[in-house]
Design a protein around this nucleic acid. Structure first.
Length: 791
DNA sequence: AACCAGGCTTC
DNA sequence: GACGTGCCTGGTT
């Protein structure tokens, strides 16, 4: 019979010594089904030397066969490796684990120069070879299998024909379950062997919210809610389980807590399927897709603090003022004080509802990324940008008959990057910002850059890279060029397709997420090539790309100037030029002479530069103030300093003068000296980029973090530490205190005046001749931030 | 003055 | 569970 299904995930099991591929899917009629493929076997390649005696290698390799996973095939064939044909032996066995052992033995066989593709997980091997990717519709010939137990699905089928992709964009309606736990934390950091769970909050995509709350006792009694949780999951049977930071917190905590209390956390679609640690720091739930939405929040640079409430507000999912917020370290108090328990539950409810709504924002993109890269939906978020692209490349290589290079440890070698032009300082009127579109991918295409096109000897039909002398042959197209052309062509096609649908239609949304995913993959290609951990690492290639980028910008500057356009600034692939009619001609000439596309991205009514690179403020045509690079947009400056700088920038851009700005800064300094500024505006946030004991210097945020630890809080690598500077003698680090542990009267106001507010303001005002003294002198009293804003 | 650390930039 | 380099700044040593 024919089955049409939407593929959710691919996994494998060993049944009576034989590997079976499990295709977890939703059938067209909405049943959750499992399709088994018993015909797939693990294999790897041995690359043969040119003079190898092929038949001898076959027989020697066969002799290595042993045990319950014999070598069942040694096939001599031809593949391409970095574009060149090579003879290989494809060695097939039975059990995926056996590949590792045979790999070592085969390496030693005479005539074998290399062993390839022996480090690819079996389920991914299936995805690569059969060109099936999760999050797509397929059609296949199947046969129902009766009497299969152990799987929580409507039907189990056996695959008869290879799945064929269907041209359907819209996924079926997934059952999504959001989960969030609150833990009793009187000692700050929580420990599953000690601290009970207060509530497991659940919200599903059918609109149901369920709060499983511990029963009363000296501490919360949570054994029953763990059982209820298991029952709930099994009854609702979600396809996707989402959480926020659930890879690092909720899921492992539930698992360990259940372990401790003797509850079996059997929540998978496989009977006995307990969540377990998987790749990329991800926790997997067998047969379901566990997606940690925090991974996607991490990719929003505009949001500095990635707490759930802030991210939910940023994405318009839940306003912070309309929800209950509790400081994390006080949760246990809301349990201890019975009258406040309801507040805690409301807080937990708001969290889990936000999480569910966030999934609506993130999952459509994640699904497109999954279907393009082949990484299952539950792993694609946890995988870094480099791995995502690498999976796409591995799929492309397999389709092209190209062997996948091994992951090897290499020494890091730095190389020169992009060029940043010296800005012309001062205020400029009417400036256009032009960007080369996808500059690096297009350079890689134009010059056919890659490891397989690199030519070391004398070469007549090559591109020679200025300044480096590297040569890349013009044809045939290399691996990167072919892949990038496909990516860009696909993206163009998707964008064309989008035009057929109304902007608010589901089709439009799906296609829009798809073109975004394609763009992200294309843009990652240069950085990937220069990454030492990449399978297709090629330093000379990355070096050539940046060299050509610098050359391109320089030539564009010459073109602009020859047309009478003043170039004010430029960085990597952008140019700031006077906004004049000649721009049209400039764009055409860049296209004609440089064969790359450049476009006007935006126009500033006014833009202001100091002598610093990578820093400017601009007034857009619709009256917004763009701040780039300055303290105002950085996460490691206090709110008060950022606010002052932003307002100063606005006044300077809007009025062209500074007198009002100076008055305003003075007023803020006075407010500060009188301690009329709330402590929240004084917090300085910094990230711990390594674990505390690895620091060799006593930076302020490090000492603040140590103070948190002694107070019983958990602070780890990657956490953001918020501190304030308090009064006293000695270096700042000795006076940095976690913001929630400081009293207002302890604040070192002078520090905030001299090292935050005034430097931030001067960064802009200094150019106009304002000095520190002018801002410090006490002026007429009473002018506040509020007064300023209302004028 | 040299260093370490962190953050933003190109997108 | 590492995509790149360039630039700027503060704080410590």
């Amino acid at each position: 019979m024919k089955l049409r299904f939407y593929l959710l995930d691919v996994s494998y099991e060993i049944h009576s010594g034989i590997p079976v591929i499990l295709l977890w899917a939703i059938a067209e009629d909405d049943r959750r089904v499992l399709v088994l493929d018993r015909g797939f076997r693990p294999y790897f390649y041995a690359v043969l030397s040119e003079d190898a005696g092929e038949q001898e290698i076959v027989s020697r390799t066969k002799l290595l066969s042993r045990g319950d996973s014999p070598i069942i095939g040694v096939e001599i064939t031809t593949r391409k490796y970095y574009g060149r044909p090579v003879r290989v032996a494809k060695i097939t066995t039975v059990k995926p684990e056996a590949v590792r052992e045979y790999r070592e033995a085969v390496k030693k066989v005479k005539g074998v120069v290399d062993v390839l593709e022996a480090d690819i997980r079996f389920s991914m091997r299936y995805i690569l070879d059969n060109d099936v990717t999760p999050c797509q519709w397929y059609e296949a010939e199947v046969e129902p299998i009766e009497g299969v137990t152990g799987y929580r699905v409507s039907s189990v089928y056996s695959l008869v024909s290879k799945p064929r992709p269907l041209d359907r964009a819209i996924p079926p309606k997934l059952r999504i379950l959001a989960l969030d736990i609150e833990v009793y934390n009187p000692r700050g950091a929580t420990d599953p062997s000690r601290d009970p769970i207060i509530t497991v909050s659940l919200a599903n995509s059918e609109g149901e919210v369920k709060m499983l709350t511990a029963s009363d006792g000296p501490v919360p009694q949570d054994r029953e809610i763990l059982k209820e949780f298991v029952n709930y999951v099994l009854a609702y049977d979600p396809d996707v389980v989402v959480g926020y930071n659930s890879n690092r917190y909720d899921i492992p905590y539930l698992v360990e807590r259940a372990n401790k209390l003797g509850v079996v956390l059997d929540i998978g679609r496989v009977r006995g399927g307990i969540p377990r640690p998987s790749v990329h720091g991800h926790y997997s739930i067998p047969g379901r897709l566990h997606v940690d939405l925090y991974n996607f929040a991490e990719e929003i640079p505009e949001v500095k603090i990635k707490s759930l409430d802030v991210v939910a507000e940023y994405l318009g999912v839940m306003k912070r003022v309309e929800r209950v917020l509790i400081p994390g370290h006080e949760i246990y108090r809301y349990w201890d004080d019975r009258s406040r328990r309801k507040i805690l539950l409301d807080y937990a409810r708001d969290d889990v509802v936000s999480t569910l709504r966030l999934s609506e924002k993130f999952l459509p993109f994640a699904m497109q990324l999954s279907s393009l890269t082949g990484l299952p939906l539950d792993q694609v978020g946890a995988a870094s940008v480099g791995y995502r692209l690498e999976w796409y490349l591995m799929r492309a290589a397999t389709k092209m008959g190209e062997l996948i290079p091994n992951r090897v440890e290499r020494e890091y070698e730095p190389y020169k990057g992009a060029i940043v032009l010296e800005p012309k300082k001062g205020v400029h009127e009417s400036v256009a910002v032009l960007d080369f579109t996808s500059m690096y991918p297009n350079i890689m295409i134009k010059y056919n850059i890659g490891p397989d096109t690199f030519v070391e000897e004398e070469c007549s039909n090559c591109y020679v890279i200025p300044g480096l002398g590297y040569s890349f042959r013009k044809d045939p197209p290399g691996f990167y060029k072919s892949v990038l052309e496909t990516l860009l062509r696909l993206r163009k096609a998707v964008r064309e397709e989008m035009k057929k649908y109304p902007v608010d239609s589901p089709e439009y949304r799906v296609l829009d997420e798809r073109q975004r995913a394609l763009k992200i993959l294309a843009n990652a290609s240069y950085g990937y090539m220069g990454w030492v951990g990449a399978r297709w690492y090629f330093r000379q290639g990355a070096e050539a790309v940046t060299a050509l980028g610098r050359e391109t910008i320089k030539r564009a500057v010459e073109l602009a100037e020859s047309l009478g356009l003043e170039v004010i600034y430029g960085d990597t692939d952008s140019l700031f030029v006077s906004n004049k009619p000649e721009i049209q001609k400039f764009v055409e000439e860049v296209m004609r002479f440089l064969e790359l596309e450049i476009k006007v991205d935006k126009v500033y009514r006014r833009v202001f530069f100091t002598e610093a690179k990578k820093r400017y403020v601009g007034l857009t045509e619709d009256g917004r103030v763009d701040i780039v690079g300055f303290e105002a947009v950085r996460g490691d400056w206090s709110e008060i300093a950022k606010e002052v700088q932003e307002n100063v920038a606005r006044v300077v851009l809007e009025t062209g003068g500074i007198s009002k700005a100076v008055e305003y800064v003075k007023s803020v300094v006075q407010e500060l000296r009188r301690l009329k500024v709330s402590i929240e505006k004084l917090v300085i946030w910094k990230t711990l980029t390594k674990s505390l004991d690895e620091y060799e210097v006593s930076a302020p945020h490090v000492t603040a973090a140590k103070r948190m630890i002694s107070a019983g809080f958990k602070v780890e690598k990657g956490d953001k530490v918020g501190y304030v500077v308090t009064k006293g003698a000695g270096p700042i680090s000795s006076r940095a205190v976690p913001y929630f542990m400081a009293r207002p009267e302890d604040i070192d106001v002078d520090y905030y005046v001299k090292h935050q507010v005034i430097p931030a303001a001067l960064r802009i005002l200094e150019y106009f001749g304002v000095s520190e003294k002018q801002l410090e002198v006490a002026s007429r009293a009473g002018k506040t931030l509020f007064d300023f804003r209302s004028t």
